[in-house]
């Protein structure tokens, strides 16, 4: 009988010790905020365009962390969806067409002759990529423009257009080789006698 009591006593003592350690660790190493939100935010393209229905990338990251769909980001496209699916261990889904189509990278361009200097686009730009002052001509810093489209709507004289970013010699890269249509996977001798 004694031996049972000793065992219970020893286990109780151990439980107390480990409980104390765990309790201490829970307080000492408490993580502020939700780290998964930061990780999701890191993957999102940071255009701050609001096409997902949230007022910026971070709010959408928070929404995803709370269980919203991961396919609402047209600027990120399928690549972002796949990376998010990978991170969150979900099945990648196609982009939700309701929020827009995946398109080539664009940047805003102000037709400067038509600009009246109203500063409305400057206020709309989420990344401060438009330069100008009241009654002065405005211009877009194209290197900083995320192509979010948000400056086009407020312009009273419609002098802002979205221009696709041209591929130059310096941004060009090789394309992946196209698989041979219908012939891929065949061994060379299989093609004998066929007109190639």
């Amino acid at each position: 009988m004694d031996i049972v009591l000793y065992a219970i006593g020893a286990l109780l003592a151990l439980a107390l010790i480990f409980g104390a350690i765990l309790g201490f660790a829970a307080i000492r190493f408490k993580v502020e905020g939700n780290p998964i939100v930061d990780q999701i935010n890191e993957i999102l393209p940071q255009t701050q365009c609001g096409q997902c229905g949230y007022p910026g990338c971070r709010p959408y990251a928070e929404a995803i962390a709370n269980g919203d769909a991961i396919n609402k980001c047209p600027p990120g496209g399928q690549a972002t969806i796949n990376t998010l699916a990978d991170l969150l261990d979900m099945e990648p889904e196609p982009l939700d067409a309701e929020h827009g189509q995946e398109s080539v990278t664009k940047v805003a361009f102000i037709r400067e002759a038509e600009c009246i200097g109203c500063t409305k686009c400057i206020q709309a730009c989420p990344v401060d990529a438009i330069l100008g002052a009241a009654k002065q001509m405005h211009t877009v810093i194209s290197d900083e423009c995320t192509g979010c489209d948000l400056c086009v709507e407020p312009c009273p004289v419609d002098c802002i257009e979205m221009r696709p970013v041209d591929i130059t010699v310096r941004t060009w890269s090789w394309a992946l080789p196209q698989p041979n249509h219908g012939k891929a996977g065949l061994i060379a001798t299989d093609l004998r006698g066929q007109t190639v």
Binding site: Q46, V127, T146
Partner: peptide
């Protein structure tokens, strides 16, 4: 670029 955009935002 997205990192820079985030910073700017």
């Amino acid at each position: 670029k997205s990192e820079r955009s985030k910073q700017r935002y």
